[in-house]
Amino acid sequence: MLRNWHLPFVVVLGFGLLSGCSEPSEQLRIGVAFETLQTEYWVASVEAIEAELRRRNIEMIEAVADNDANRQLDQIHILIARGVDGIIVSPKDSMTVIPMIKAANRANIPIVIYNRPPADNDGQSVTVVADNYEIAKATVEYMAERAVETGRKYKAMILIGDLGDINAIARRDGFDDAIRPFSDIIEVVARVPTEWSQDKALSGVTSALQVNPDINFVFASTDFLFPPLISALRTAGKYKKIGEEGHVLLGGFDGDPLAYSMLVERYLDADGVQDVYFDCAASVDAVVRMHQNQIVESIIRDPGFVIHQGNLEEKAGQMWGAQIARSND
């Protein structure tokens, strides 16, 4: 133990030389900084990244910022001070990530942005992101086609995420653009801003259902908001299976275990799935290749897919929520 006492001084002296070339240690170390772990999606992501890093014999250093952008920037500085070989960050929003990119660039450490793309900036980074707009649009289009088949009129509600998050805006836009061609039969009567919070979603949806008791078409911008949505629908007596009288057309986004079980039980019509396993493997791959000074394209897009009653059997194998749900049983 005593031997370690001289280490700080060596490190202080040697630190300036360290940036750029990695320490001569045999194992790579990657810092993984998440803004939050509050939904299944983020937990599944961290675990998938950890699994991929372990597979490649790379050490993971985890930091979670608990919704605080300033704390996350501190954590990035600390990861840099610890001399990690690369950083994977899932930021709070598209703007506050820019100083993080710049800090990593200054230290010459590769940085990969997971899931939430940064705004325009002159820093060097790689973004791995699902095509939120297209996936949401395809999901809602599937729902709209089911609506057309019934030949009835529909009143629609969307649960919108935090508008500071580009992904929330992309999903909302996907919803709007998918609905527009069907405006003769689907009218959007409620837009509930949830800021990704279950509490806010519950009170917003409850009241929306009181003002518009005939809502029968609902899209949630994240599966995380299903519990309050189900709760409010149940209270209003509107949570019915597909084919039952009074079924509300339901769509979601993410592909989490609850969405999978709702699909199996035939409550949910369609769910836009982000391919967590692809995204995480791509992030790790990108950060490793950047560390080896290879050129990596600046945006890696996950095309994602829509899972619905028609392709449930076929696509469930690719849905991360399905795998978690099955392993829990």
Binding site: L37, Q38, T39, S197, Q198, F224, P227, P228, I230, S231
Partner: peptide
């Protein structure tokens, strides 16, 4: 009882 879910920010 109202949410029927435990979320980490409850």
């Amino acid at each position: 009882a109202q949410l029927a879910a435990v979320s980490p920010n409850l």
